[in-house]
Structure formats: structure tokens, C-alpha cells
Design a protein around this nucleic acid. Structure first.
Lengths: 239, 239
DNA sequence: TCCGGACAACCTGCCAGACAGGTTTGCCCA
DNA sequence: TGGGCAAACCTGTCTGGCAGGTTGTCCGGA
């Protein structure tokens, strides 16, 4: 696998990409925020002297990146930050064998040891509650892997949120689609009840460290969690 | 600013989004890799029983996320991993005031202390050469901020590449567009020659640590670099 | 046999016009 | 003043068409 990651020079002077530029410029120039409405397709079509087809494709592209929201009959609106697009990029990388699962774990470890630390420092009572609930729900539903996975994902997500930096949420979210596909593999490498509970216990301990407000301990537990996971994956021959 | 980051449930059963799904499924099912060709618009149109317009918008959306490459007259091809889409998402977040510059620095610090460490462990001779060249070029062109910035960005990018994990390159690249806009602000907070050279010296030292293969020192230098930068930004009132 | 060039078939970029629904707005009536 | 209805507006999708770039093939010459 090559580690080349490029960015095409997007001065591709096609009408559609120019139109995309005009629309983002419009958002910036008018200081639009999430929920604010954009001009209609027909209006932009006239204004930029291109066909509605071109404007539509531009809107469609922006919607694909989740920069705007589109709904039938309604005007396009500026969207809230959303990790959907990044999620697709990562998934694409994995499926085209440009990214390995192990590389994802390394990045997640790097990011999530930080979110755990920050969460321990910045979490609110509500957030602690949600984090702990998910950790405990993992143990309660240990017989239903599907449930365990959902609470596991939500657990990590809530920690990222509690870190109070939306970019961390964005990145953690970006791995969600792929995680949903690789998670069962990791689970299967822990066939005994004891091993499963041990893995879940780390989550519970982590929730407690965040509740106590112990960043060092939260950091270490998250690091251990990922170290164990990678070890399990390697043992299963995923490398 | 809210820290909410959502992902719309994309079961939007529109023809276009279904078609996007079909195309990504096609890539996965046929195990296509970068450069491989996709069916023509007309063929997909017949195959999925939708108009060419719909297929075009689907292609256009995928191209916006840089999952495929489109060129006139040519068939669409599977694209290499590319941070263009992620870059736009981040930029959008900043312009709509959902992300602050300081939050970006925190994430970059988290990611890049890791890339510096890994680069020190995994770099090849060629990579060391490129990294050092950029660091030295910063010093040589110290009178032309534009040049300094370009070499600075390239410096960080090369380190990410040397870490041999494409996801790190992806993330570092994702911040490039925004960095290009905020970099001059940081530069202005270092008005004296001495301060500028001091900041550049860290880069040179870092290049050396990576060359020597000293991960601990590389890590610390990168951390210091970001700490200084944040301090400068705060002093300038960007917070 | 091999190479190069020209031509035909194919493909994409863009456009105009049209129609079926869903949404918004404003007006009118109670 | 408040509620409801109809018209105006807007988006999703389709058809058909033309210009211009690309690809592949085939034939003639070396």
C-alpha cells in the first residue's frame, strides 16, 4: 500500500466547480450560519448565467459533503457540522485498500487518548451520566453483540462530545461507518465471557475516571483499551 | 458555539442517493482500486432504470467527495485517497463559526506530536531530505512570508507522510485550506526578526530530531511548536 | 511484422423545457 | 384576531439535444 495522499488542484475550471465556489463564497460573504437559507436554484442560475442543471449539480455536491441540506420544495439551507462525508472518505479508503484497519486503530488511539483526557477535565454531569449509562449497558447486554457494539460506539462518541471540541467529534464520527464493519471481528477474538467482561470493564473504569475528573487515569485507560484491541486484532491475523 | 456534531440518517430514499449507494457498492463488489474505470453514465442509467441526469448528479457528488475522478469524454475512475473533501468540511465549519482556530490547533497538536514521533521512527532518507529542505527554506526566505508559509505547510505534510499512515496525511491535509488563511495572523504576532527565526529554528531542530531518529525529542519539539503558536495567537486576541 | 495516423463510435459537459409533487406565503373569511 | 385555503414558488426527475474531447480500431507504409 502506498501512503500517498494527494489533493487535486481544484482549479478545474468546470462550470459546476466554479458554481460550488460561488455558493461557498456566498455563504462566507453573507456570514450565513447553520439553518440559514440559500438562494433558489433558479435565482443562482440567472445570477451566475448557467443552467439550472449546473446549479443543481453544485448543490448536490455540497449536499454530499453535508455542507448544505436539501429537501424537496424547500430552499437549501446551510448545514450543521456533520461527519457523514468524512465517514465515506474513510470507508472508501478501506474498501479500496488504501487504508488498513490497524492504521485506523493507531489514529483512534492518538485522538481518543486525548478526548478521554479532555473529557475528564471538561465533562458536565449530564455527559458523565450518558457515558456511564452506555458503559453499563455494554455489560448488561453482553449476550447481544449488536447491542454491545452500539453502546460501545455511542460511548466513544459521548466522550468525544464531552471533550468540547467539535473536530474531535468529527474525527471519531468519521470512523464510525468502518468501525461498524470491523467491530464484530474484534469481538470474535474475545470468545470467552471472562475476556468480554474484561474488555467491557475497561469502559466502566474509564467512565469512572471521567466522572472523578482524573485525566491521567482516563488517558491511560483509553490507551490500554486500544492496546488490547490491537493486540486482539493482531492475534486474529488482521494486519 | 455548540459542540453538536450530527450525522443525518442518510436513508433519504432519493433516487440520487440510492444511485450513490449503488455506485459505491459496485466499487466494493468488484474490488475496484484507484484508477479502475466505472461504467458509463448511460450504462448505469439503463442498469438502474433512472435517467442520465440522476446518474450524473450521483457521479458529481462522488467526485465532490473525491471518491472518483471525472474528466470530459473519459470514463469515471476510482480516485486515490484525497483530503479535498475533508478540507472543505473543516473550512465550512470555521466560516460558519462552528469551529474555532484554537480548536484546530488543539487537534493538530494531538495529531502532529504523534506524526513527529512516528516520522522519527519510520522516515526514509529521502523523506528526511525533503523535511530538512523545507525547514531550511523557511529560514532562507524569511523575508517573504508567503514562501515561509508554503514551506511550513509542506514541512508538516512531509512529516505526516513519513509517519507512514495515510490517515494522518488526510487529517493534516484537511487543515491545510484553513491554515493558509490563518497562518498570516500567526506570523504577524511575531514581528521581530528574532522571534521569527526562533519559531523557524524549532522546525530545523525538529527536522534534525527526525533525522537522528529520536522520537521523544521530535515529539517534544512538535509539542513546543504548537504551544508557542497557541500562545502567540492568544496574545493576539484570537480566542 | 510492426508502427503510426486517421476515422468512427463513444462518452461527458452543458443546455432548454416540462411536469409532478411538496412548501411557503399571503389573502380572505369567520 | 385567528384560522384555513389557494396561488405562487421551489425542488426532484425526465427527455432530448448538441458540442467537444477520448478511445479503439483498422489500414497503409516502413
Amino acid at each position: 500500500m502506498s501512503t500517498a495522499v494527494s489533493a487535486k488542484h481544484s482549479d478545474a475550471a468546470s462550470l459546476v466547480s466554479n458554481t460550488i465556489g460561488e455558493i461557498t463564497r456566498h455563504i462566507r460573504a453573507h456570514e450565513l450560519g447553520p439553518g440559514d437559507r440559500l438562494p433558489s436554484e433558479a435565482a443562482l442560475s440567472r445570477q451566475l448565467s448557467v443552467s439550472r442543471t449546473v446549479v443543481r449539480e453544485a448543490f448536490s455536491s455540497l449536499a454530499a459533503m453535508r455542507l448544505i441540506d436539501l429537501r424537496a420544495g424547500r430552499r437549501a439551507t446551510v448545514a450543521e457540522l456533520d461527519y457523514g462525508a468524512m465517514s465515506l472518505v474513510i470507508e472508501h479508503g478501506v474498501h479500496t485498500e488504501q487504508i488498513t484497519v490497524q492504521q485506523i486503530y493507531d489514529v483512534r488511539r492518538t485522538i481518543e487518548t486525548r478526548t478521554a483526557m479532555l473529557a475528564a477535565l471538561r465533562r458536565t454531569a449530564d455527559e458523565v451520566e450518558r457515558i456511564r449509562t452506555h458503559a453499563l449497558a455494554m455489560r448488561e447486554n453482553v449476550q447481544q453483540p449488536e447491542q454491545v457494539m452500539e453502546h460501545d460506539l455511542a460511548f466513544h462518541h459521548e466522550i468525544a462530545k464531552a471533550a468540547k471540541n467539535p473536530i474531535f467529534s468529527l474525527i471519531v464520527g468519521a470512523f464510525e461507518r468502518v468501525s461498524r464493519q470491523t467491530w464484530p471481528i474484534g469481538w470474535r477474538t474475545r470468545p470467552s465471557d471472562a475476556e468480554q467482561l474484561e474488555m467491557i470493564q475497561i469502559h466502566i473504569d474509564l467512565a469512572e475516571a471521567i466522572e472523578t475528573g482524573d485525566p491521567q487515569s482516563a488517558r491511560d485507560l483509553m490507551a490500554r483499551h486500544f492496546d488490547e484491541s490491537v493486540k486482539a486484532l493482531l492475534a486474529a491475523g488482521i494486519a
